[in-house]
């Protein structure tokens, strides 16, 4: 691994000051994504600012919102009783990802901010517009079986690997951020990860010196019937080929509210509003579910390698809706 300097501030203020004063610095918390990127030569921060001991690792709630501290480990979120009782979708998504060892280290914000999944992004010998702007995309025309079919561009077809972010996108989750000087911002998780368009190197909406403090979810969505269904190449410990997060409510036999997002298919957690609209106001019949599944994949632009994902996405979503209703 290339060397870097290291600092461990003990307050948010001092972490932000360090970042403001050091161009090319990066925050590190759980480290499970960052260290692999440094090892692979994909990232080369001059200074690592270790925020892992800041006091941002609590899960709390008030009347309106569930608030997950940015540094709460994936394990701690999954085991939290408020999360389990009000938002089991978040727990189910988290437990479908990684291994217990990784979940014990990986943090809430780090999970969402994990870098794109694409073998060419991770291989510095390959052309990659995301890693090296303007160098081209080895994935397009290369091996793209695991890559994106929705929201991709002619510059990048990577996918986002977070299951947690898919569940959060379905639940309208937001991240609360702060920058040096105290400017605060609230960004929807759905918007936080950017589509590549013509600038795949701009992976997120965050400024380089912006720090996530918490991830919040509106408790008006608590208690929805939900399901997270994930398919992958092996039974466990793998990134999604396709996943689906579904949360809905029924009123007198009809779907009153529906929140749906897909994972493994796009460069960001993919909210499927067309699918939601196809369900709301209708009894969840086979026909209605089939229409929702068809709506979810409208606009897909697969490669020869990953054409299977389009049909798989519809099937995974169909199963997730049925599991949420069961």
């Amino acid at each position: 691994m290339q060397n870097f300097s290291y600092a461990r501030p003990d307050t948010v203020d001092s972490a932000l000051s360090l970042m403001a004063d050091h161009q090319g610095a990066a925050f590190i918390a759980g480290g499970t994504d960052m260290l692999n990127r440094i090892r692979d030569g994909v990232s080369a921060p001059g200074l690592l600012i270790d925020i892992s001991r800041l006091d941002l690792a609590k899960v709390s709630k008030d009347k309106k919102r569930l608030s997950i501290g940015a540094l709460t480990t994936n394990t701690a979120i999954a085991e939290n009783h408020i999360v389990a009782s009000e938002f089991p979708l978040l727990r189910d998504a988290l437990l479908s990802g990684a291994s217990p060892q990784v979940r014990n280290m990986a943090t809430a914000a780090g999970n969402i901010l994990q870098s794109a999944r694409c073998p060419y992004f991770r291989d510095v010998m390959s052309a990659c517009n995301r890693r090296d702007p303007g160098s081209g995309c080895s994935a397009i025309g290369g091996t793209s079986r695991k890559l994106g079919v929705l929201g991709v561009s002619d510059q990048c077809i990577a996918v986002h690997g977070s299951d947690f972010a898919v569940a959060l996108a379905a639940l309208d989750g937001t991240v609360q951020t702060v920058r040096p000087g105290g400017e605060r911002c609230s960004i929807k998780v759905e918007d936080l990860i950017r589509l590549p368009e013509d600038r795949p190197d701009e992976a997120t909406m965050l400024a380089p010196d912006e720090l996530i403090l918490s991830i919040d979810v509106d408790r008006a969505l608590a208690g929805f019937s939900s399901a997270y269904v994930k398919t992958r190449d092996r039974a466990s410990f793998g990134y999604a080929l396709v996943s689906a997060a579904v949360a809905l409510t029924l009123d007198e036999g009809r779907v009153a509210q529906a929140r749906i997002a897909l994972g493994g298919v796009a460069p960001k957690p993919w909210r499927a509003r067309g699918a939601e609209a196809a369900l709301v106001g209708r009894a969840p019949t086979e026909d209605a579910i089939a229409e929702a599944a068809a709506q979810a994949i409208v606009g897909a632009t697969p490669t020869e390698d990953n054409r299977y994902k389009v049909d798989l996405a519809a099937r995974v979503l169909t199963r997730a809706i049925k599991e949420a209703l069961a």
Partner: peptide, 10 residues
């Protein structure tokens, strides 16, 4: 915001 988020005072 501070009331619902982790304690932090700018």
């Amino acid at each position: 915001a501070a009331a619902i988020g982790p304690s932090f005072m700018a």
